[in-house]
Nucleic acid binder design. Structure first.
Length: 211
DNA sequence: GCCAACGTTGGC
DNA sequence: GCCAACGTTGGC
């Protein structure tokens, strides 16, 4: 697994590895997203055909040391096992995900990535020196898997958490698209499914003045 | 199966 | 760095 360079904030924009989202498959303990480096791709229009699902993936933009290793853009969240497994395996090639900066001074949605490799076992769970080592995971029944994602683009403007929350609150009363957004209703999920309506609404915020 | 203690996430 | 929210663990 690639080791991230130390940088103050923001996603890496180059490097061959793509971004990896790691999600624990079973056992119900946790899930994690790890983003090491993001590969820039030519902006490609997808012709607008409907993709299956949309996602929001949390990552930490700031360096953090764990077991003496800079694990940087990594976040972990407790998940319900079944849901976690479903979501992990539900992420399909070319589906889009917002990447969200968490645990930092300015939390919010920073950009877009897409799935370029569907779930596969994460080898680092078996490596004792890895911060992701999990002694309870067995080779023949791995608990953790990852997907690779590729950088698509930054948001036209950063969408702060506070702005999303304000819409969420308003939509709870008005029945708007963010009324059930998982970021607020299941706040500890590190990988969240978005409805088409949620995804489109958030994209529409890019065009608007910050509220 | 309850629930208090504990650990982690993540906003602030 | 603090701590609220909340998920997990383990004693009973």
């Amino acid at each position: 697994m690639p080791r991230a360079r130390r940088r103050p904030a923001g996603p890496d924009m180059k490097g061959p590895e793509g971004k990896r989202s790691k999600t624990k498959n079973l056992g119900g303990a946790s899930a994690q997203v790890e983003s090491s480096s993001l590969q820039r791709t030519p902006a490609s229009e997808d012709g607008g055909e409907a993709l299956g699902s949309y996602w929001l993936m949390k990552s930490e933009p700031e360096s953090r040391l764990e077991k003496g290793v800079d694990v940087k853009v990594r976040s972990r969240a407790r998940l319900r096992a079944r849901r976690c497994m479903e979501w992990d395996q539900a992420m399909r090639l070319d589906e889009e995900a917002f990447f969200y900066h968490s645990n930092c001074r300015a939390p919010g949605i920073a950009g877009l990535v897409k799935i370029v490799k569907e779930a596969y076992p994460d080898h680092t769970q078996f490596e004792k020196n890895s911060p992701h080592y999990d002694s309870s995971s067995k080779e023949d029944n791995p608990k953790w898997s990852m997907v690779d994602v590729q950088f698509v683009r930054m948001m036209k403007r950063f969408i702060p958490l506070a702005e999303l929350r304000a819409h969420h609150q308003a939509h709870k009363a008005s029945g708007g698209p963010l009324k059930n957004m998982a970021l607020f209703t299941h706040q500890r999920l590190s990988v969240q499914r978005l409805t088409r309506e949620e995804f489109d609404f958030i994209l529409s915020l890019e065009e608007k003045e910050p509220s």
